[in-house]
Design a protein around this nucleic acid. Sequence first.
DNA 1: CTTGTTGCAAAAAATTTGCAACGCG
DNA 2: CGCGTTGCAAATTTTTTGCAACAAG
Lengths: 140, 140
Amino acid sequence: MELEDILRERDFRLTRPRRVVWEVLSESERHLSAAEIAEEVHRRDPGINVSSVYRTLALLAELDLVRESRLTETSTWEPAHADAVIHLVCENCGATRHHDAALVEDLRAEIARTADFAPSVIDVRVSGTCAKCPAPSTPR
Amino acid sequence: MELEDILRERDFRLTRPRRVVWEVLSESERHLSAAEIAEEVHRRDPGINVSSVYRTLALLAELDLVRESRLTETSTWEPAHADAVIHLVCENCGATRHHDAALVEDLRAEIARTADFAPSVIDVRVSGTCAKCPAPSTPR
DNA sequence: CTTGTTGCAAAAAATTTGCAACGCG
DNA sequence: CGCGTTGCAAATTTTTTGCAACAAG
């Protein structure tokens, strides 16, 4: 379903700021901070204000079209993806990757069974060192 | 090892702000936001400034004595605990609990094996509904 | 046309910093 | 006593909000 349809379905309008923010997010293959999004949006249309970027991100998140992550210092945004997500964050270079793992579903089952808790979304964040980076010389 | 020793070992001093912040964190059985910590610290000693609270949190985090979580809107702090941690966050009442799960270690092994990535800390955040809260009437 | 949205500028909220005074070791 | 730390106030940084003008449907 298209962005426009999703919006219209809920009586929201497809405006230029919304289209551009969505394009920027869709075209990026990595997480972007609000500042980066605002910058790129502004590059594409200097007339679009930062506050519209924030308002759009909030709206798209509400519609489950984008997802906010707080993996690092600043929070970042990306198009929403399947429920179980593993984020691999390199402590050295900061790169963030996704990783599929069937085990997450096992985890969900275990929690549902043992924790008196009904899981909906599971987020896994793994800090570590990626292949490109040297192993930490002084492991803490 | 005591706080004082850990500090002294690295040529830091045990000061009143540091002691009180540490006490507040140690005595709490839940995550606290910086504002909550500052408030409680101030209650115990009105002379301690907010900026000292922030500086202390940064130092204690550096020493791996406390840990910052960004599970919800605002980031929260808690004494550092074992590596693999599962946080259960209730979408309804906001309560945060810890949960042990051996599966996390399986996950670590799988990532190490398949992802070209050396995991150090693994954080699992599970959103959902806790036993005390009604199931969401309109599941999204 | 009607009403949701925007741009702008100002406000809020959250955190950081410079610096002289202070106090731990 | 010396140097790491603090309190304070001001500066940053990040996000939010009120409101008149604007534009999507």
